[in-house]
Nucleic acid binder design. Structure first.
Length: 601
DNA sequence: GCCGTTTTCGGCCCGACTGTTTTCAGTCG
């Protein structure tokens, strides 16, 4: 987009791509997916140790910074094997995929057990072993078939299954369905950004912008809406339907097309004239309730508002930019993230009239100076302390807190008091090697059932930042769970509650907890609540954040990074904070580190 | 299949929880 056009239409990007830009590496995710499926298929057959090697390799490739094809081009098989976690066997399979677009061993395994292993294992409590049993005994290959069998009571007679597991699986399937057809924003953004970037590069495209739930930065999105400006719409449409991601065309017209992408997501593209771009952007950004309220205001003022513009009779009154439309309606421009008709229109009205109670000054993308939850290969992270620090610095951060798990979580090799001390020494050593970023010492401490941390207070007192999190006993009663978390908040060493709801989007419900009581206790004990920015976590929902902000509770936005590529997710945490009406001052890690430390206990 | 100041073989994170059992297998983190 040219600078003059940007100025002409008053364009402001819906989110900044520059700060935490997503690297688009589609081949890597394809290979990672295959390796991860191979891991499950091998696990089914009871093959020892190999599954873990494949799973590990899958994660490594998924989070690789570089396109694996480039790695391969540089030094062939050897450069693949130079990646820690990739040996000769898997390197050869990657080479085979790059050359032939398939892996024979994988095809062979799939032939032996032709089930939708990815789909089935995404049901909570269902792993590869059970999937295999269900296939062998009942011939179940898909989630649909499993649901049918469970409803017919056919599972309870299987060895290792009973009535309860039947019910649990049905519940898991139901939960999956509520998210069906929706995609977790953070996970599909690389694909979306890749498409947008290619569209923007076309010589006949002046501009291309996402609308809908993507622009509102919702946690999950149903489909992809793209608006473009071009004088040659047919050419744009033609390019769009011929993209490698285009799997199916539902309908195609001269200025509008609707396709299905190869990742299962539907995508709409509309090509517009500059005069109605703002109106279209407003109309397709929504949400529905916000738009209805806006149209009502328009009617009261004698206008008609639609996707082509704001009209007085037949005369176009506004349409080029969103700002002029809002202005004509007597409103301040409302940021896309808070367009939900939950008070933002009234606030925009007050602000335009110069009255108190206007729109909040929302936190900006790129305003985070630090990250308070970072895991390393001391526990379940992929990278070393140094690698994480350098990646964080590259993302524009001034400091990070190393927060590896403590001892209760044995799977992660959780740190005990001794190992924690050793890590602290290591951080001091690494700090001498890296400039321009401060590495603070911390931990993600497990909160035991009774609210106590799983590691001594003496050890915790030595750390700069301590986050407490629930990692077990998820299904306590609301009263017990709330008591447990408040107990943790009362600990003088626990500064932040990590994962305050414990949910995993589309996978696990949040644990039962009285959020109002939690917010109240956080205020009283000066405990920070975390907005976890990891795409499938986003622990605090927008409503929770709004309540916390109103109560004056401080928040932190953390990537929960387990790999160097995860710092890009911080942007999603900022989006979540925006949706919860949070300003920069509500978030402690917008401060530099000495200032941030002052907010801790 | 991967890895190595326990290096080219022999280990490979392990405890809690659940639902099924009556001593354990599978899943999760």
């Amino acid at each position: 987009m040219s600078a003059s056009l940007r100025e002409e239409i008053g364009y402001t990007p819906s989110y900044t791509l520059a700060v935490f830009c997503c690297k688009i590496i589609l081949m890597n995710s394809e290979i990672a997916k295959i390796l991860s499926e191979m891991a499950m298929l091998l696990e089914m057959k009871g093959v020892p140790f190999k599954p873990r090697a494949y799973e590990k390799a899958a994660v490594i490739i998924e989070t690789l910074e570089e396109d694996i094809r480039d790695t391969y081009k540089k030094g062939g098989l050897k450069s693949l094997m130079d990646i820690s976690g990739i040996g000769q066997g898997i390197a050869e399979k990657i080479e085979e995929y790059i050359k032939t677009k398939q892996i024979k061993d994988y095809e062979h395994l799939k032939k032996q057990v032709p089930v939708d292993v990815g789909g089935l294992t995404s049901i909570e409590s269902l792993g590869p072993k059970s999937v295999y049993k269900l296939y062998k005994k009942l011939g179940i290959k898909t989630v649909g078939q499993l649901e049918k069998a469970a409803k017919a009571g056919k599972l309870r007679d299987l060895e290792g299954f009973g009535e309860k597991s039947e019910k649990k699986l049905l519940k898991g399937i139901e939960f999956l369905k509520t998210g069906q057809g929706r995609f977790i924003l953070g996970f599909v953004r690389p694909t979306i950004n890749s498409i947008l970037e290619r569209l923007r590069k076309l010589p006949y495209v002046e501009m291309a912008e996402p609308a809908g739930s993507i622009r509102r930065m919702q946690e999950t999105i149903g489909d992809l809406d793209i608006l473009a400006i071009s004088k040659e719409p047919e050419k744009v449409i033609d390019y769009f339907v011929k993209m490698p991601e285009a799997a199916h065309i539902y309908g195609q017209g001269p200025t509008k097309v609707n396709i299905r992408l190869n990742n299962g997501m539907d995508a709409d593209l509309r090509v517009l004239k500059p005069a109605s771009f703002g109106a279209a952007l407003q109309y397709f950004t929504g949400d529905k309730y916000h738009n209805i309220a806006l149209r009502e205001i328009a009617v009261r003022k004698g206008y008609k508002l639609n996707e082509y513009g704001l009209y007085k009779g037949k005369k176009l009154a506004a349409g080029k930019t969103e700002e002029e439309i809002y202005k004509k309606l007597g409103l301040e421009l409302i940021p896309p993230e808070i367009r939900t008709n939950s008070g933002e229109i009234e606030s925009a009205l007050r602000q335009a009239q110069g009255k108190p109670g206007g729109l909040p000054q929302l936190i900006d993308y790129g305003s985070l100076k630090g990250d308070l939850q970072v895991q390393t290969n001391w526990t379940d992270g992929q990278n070393s302390i140094k690698e994480m620090a350098e990646a964080a610095k590259k993302s524009g951060l001034e400091y990070i807190v190393i927060t590896d798990h403590t001892k209760f979580l044995a799977m992660t090799g959780g740190l005990d008091e001794k190992k924690l001390l050793r890590q602290m020494k290591e951080i001091d050593r690494v700090q001498k090697e890296v400039n321009g970023i401060k590495i603070l010492k911390g931990a993600e401490v497990n909160i035991l059932k009774d609210g106590r941390p799983d590691i001594s207070d003496e050890a915790l007192a030595k750390l700069d930042v301590v986050g407490g999190a629930v990692h077990s006993n998820f299904n306590l009663s609301e009263k017990e769970q709330t008591q447990r978390l408040i107990g943790a908040m009362e600990n003088p060493n626990i500064d932040i509650i990590f994962h305050p709801t414990g949910r995993v989007i589309q996978k696990r419900e949040p644990y039962k907890v009285d959020m109002d009581a939690l917010i109240k206790a956080a205020k009283r004990t000066k405990t920070i609540l975390e907005i976890d920015a990891y795409p499938s976590r986003l622990d605090l929902k927008d409503q929770h954040i709004r309540k916390a902000v109103e109560a004056g509770v401080k928040l932190s936005i953390d990537s929960d990074a387990h790999s160097i590529s995860h710092f890009q997710y911080l942007e999603l945490g900022v989006a979540q904070a925006k949706r919860g009406w949070a300003s920069k001052n509500d978030v402690v890690n917008t401060k530099n580190w000495p200032e941030m430390l002052k907010f801790l206990k």
